[in-house]
Nucleic acid binder design. Structure first.
Length: 341
DNA sequence: GACCGTAAGTTTTCCACGAA
DNA sequence: TTCGTGGAAAACTTACGGTC
């Protein structure tokens, strides 16, 4: 009980913070996109690194389980931006996590939340990195430990009071030291299909705010980590395209040439910053300004800087400058100087 | 590529209760 | 009164395999 009270003092919540995701987690198919437990390992290999994701007793952690990691990354990032101390061990209210990620708060939601923690802890990631003559192998789970503090109500029933999660060192460093985070659209949590979520991640990571990004259908299937054959994957993809649910991006499939057997290419078209929301947003900036900022500071996430700019203007109770495009670029310069990577 | 069926999982809805 | 949480049932969605 004493412990639960102590934890309450440190409970975090993300209030108005923008959601953050780890760039590397967005690039590779580390998470299962199916809702049924995935019990077969996921393998990724290139010339330098080999990654194997092995299932725990309840399968490989899913893209829905990943919402907890996004929530934690957002909590940490928010504290960093507010110059508050951060720790690998984070306490938060399950309720806030569920609400923030668009889940329900009924009994079933809490059960699923616990399952997600279990999968994040038990999914085993083994990496092999080759450097010269040496090869280094490391194994870890998405989270190192988790703990749930339950409170007992007067009628004897127990409710979930607080949750404590210790992130693995790799993720913690990625968020706090390497600042390897990207802002994601909150509408991401509305996406029902696993494939939609995966496609949004790829779009955000690879297309970003460029006008277009293209990839062959077979490579895309590989990057999505799908187990479906290419014919089925194509059908699923067409379904996603017709639903038009993916925030900030539009997808198209077409053949490379007129030839019937030429490779199929999937193109992601960025709608940013011209989405409905941004058109009504007084802080939105022109696409050309966005491109300029991206060219000048390729290592930075311009959306993060834009949010910092908005926060700064609002915090100073200032009005939006008349020449907001120039003002934004000037702010970018200061932001980069104050936040070196 | 379109369509269908099925099982399993998820969401929604409504209501209730205790604590603050 | 509001907030945070729990329970139950119905409705809905998804994954996946099969057929044409």
């Amino acid at each position: 009980m004493k412990q639960a009270q102590q934890i309450d003092l440190f409970l975090g919540n993300i209030a108005d913070a923008s959601f953050k995701d780890d760039r590397v987690l967005m690039e590779f198919p580390f998470f299962s996109i199916q809702k049924q437990p995935k019990m077969t390992p996921i393998l990724f290999e290139d010339t330098r690194v080999q990654i194997k994701v092995e299932p725990g007793p309840k399968g490989i952690a899913t893209v829905w389980d990943k919402d907890i990691l996004i929530y934690l990354a957002t909590l940490l990032n928010d504290r960093i931006e507010k110059d508050l101390p951060v720790s690998r061990t984070i306490q938060f209210a399950a309720y806030d996590c569920l609400k923030s990620t668009g889940r329900g708060t009924g009994k079933r939601s809490y059960e699923l939340f616990l399952d997600a923690l279990f999968r994040l802890r038990s999914t085993n990631i083994v990496t092999t990195i080759a450097a010269g003559q040496q090869r280094e192998r490391r194994g870890f789970g998405w989270i190192e430990t988790w703990r749930v503090i339950e409170k007992e109500k007067a009628d004897g029933t127990r409710i979930m009071g607080a949750v404590e999660v210790t992130l693995n060192d790799w993720m913690f460093r990625a968020i706090t030291k390497d600042r390897r985070v990207l802002t994601i659209n909150p509408d991401y949590f509305e996406l029902k299909m696993g494939l939609e979520r995966r496609l949004y991640e790829l779009a955000r990571k690879h297309c970003g705010h460029q006008k277009n990004w293209s990839i062959s259908l077979s490579k895309l299937a590989n990057k999505c980590g799908t187990v479906r054959d290419l014919r089925k994957f194509r059908a699923d993809l067409r379904k996603v395209i017709s639903r038009e649910q993916i925030p900030d991006y539009q997808l198209f499939i077409k053949r490379e040439s007129q030839h019937r057997k030429s490779p199929e290419i999937v193109t992601f078209k960025s709608l940013f910053p011209r989405t409905k929301a941004s058109q009504n947003n007084p802080f939105s900036i022109e696409e050309t300004t966005w491109s300029q900022a991206q060219q000048r500071y390729p290592k930075y996430d311009i959306q993060t800087i834009q949010i910092a700019w908005k926060t700064w203007i609002q915090g100073q109770n200032q009005v939006i400058p008349q020449n907001k495009e120039q003002a934004f670029l000037a702010f970018c310069e200061k932001f980069v100087a104050n936040n070196p990577i």
